Simulated assay, not measured.
Amino acid sequence: MMSHHVITVFLIGYSHLTSFFRVGAIVLALHDASDVLLEAARVFKYSEHELGASVFSGLFALSRLVLHLIYFPFWVIRTTGCDLM
């Protein structure tokens, strides 16, 4: 988990140095938006509310799928002008 945070800070710094700070902020927002739902699912699981944990786990999976596999490659990467696809 520590390496995840170190790499994230490096990427944010690098996006700032290369004048891609707006893109870096959008990428950070897209990747962190689903983490809120994951933490909510954990809170419900720890408090033994299985229905809430199941609902938020499903919402987390759906948001992760949409944000990481649809919006990120087809919206963020495409609008930055990268010819990866």
Rank of each mutant, 00 (worst) to 15 (best):
T18L: 02
L38H: 12
S3A: 07
T8K: 06
D83S: 14
F60P: 01
E48N: 10
K45M: 08
R42W: 14
L11E: 01
D32C: 14
T8W: 00
F72A: 01
L38P: 02
I26T: 12
M1A: 08
I70K: 00
I12P: 01
P73T: 04
T18M: 06
T8S: 09
R22N: 07
S3V: 05
V43G: 01
A40G: 02
V43K: 13
G24K: 09
H4N: 10
L38Q: 11
V9R: 04
F56L: 04
P73S: 08
H49Q: 14
S15H: 01
E48I: 00
L62V: 15
V36W: 15
L62D: 05
L62W: 07
C82V: 15
A40K: 13
W75P: 08
E50C: 03
S3C: 00
S57V: 01
G58M: 05
E50W: 11
G24S: 11
L59I: 03
H16G: 07
A53M: 06
H16R: 14
R42H: 14
L65I: 11
R64L: 12
E39Y: 14
I26K: 10
C82T: 15
D32Q: 15
G81Y: 11
H49C: 11
A41N: 09
E48Q: 05
S3Q: 02
M2F: 08
S54P: 04
Y71T: 09
F21S: 08
A53V: 02
V55E: 06
G13P: 10
T79C: 06
R22M: 07
S19E: 10
V9C: 03
V27H: 08
F56R: 01
C82Q: 14
A25C: 14
M85W: 13
T18S: 08
D35P: 05
Y46D: 15
W75A: 15
I7P: 01
H68C: 07
A33N: 10
V9W: 06
S47V: 02
A61V: 12
V6K: 12
H31T: 14
A25I: 14
V6H: 06
W75L: 14
L37C: 09
S57W: 03
F21L: 11
R64H: 15
L37N: 08
V9D: 04
A61E: 01
G81F: 11
F72N: 00
H16N: 07
L51Y: 10
F74S: 13
I77G: 05
F72H: 03
H5L: 04
G81R: 08
A29E: 05
L59C: 03
H5M: 04
L65N: 10
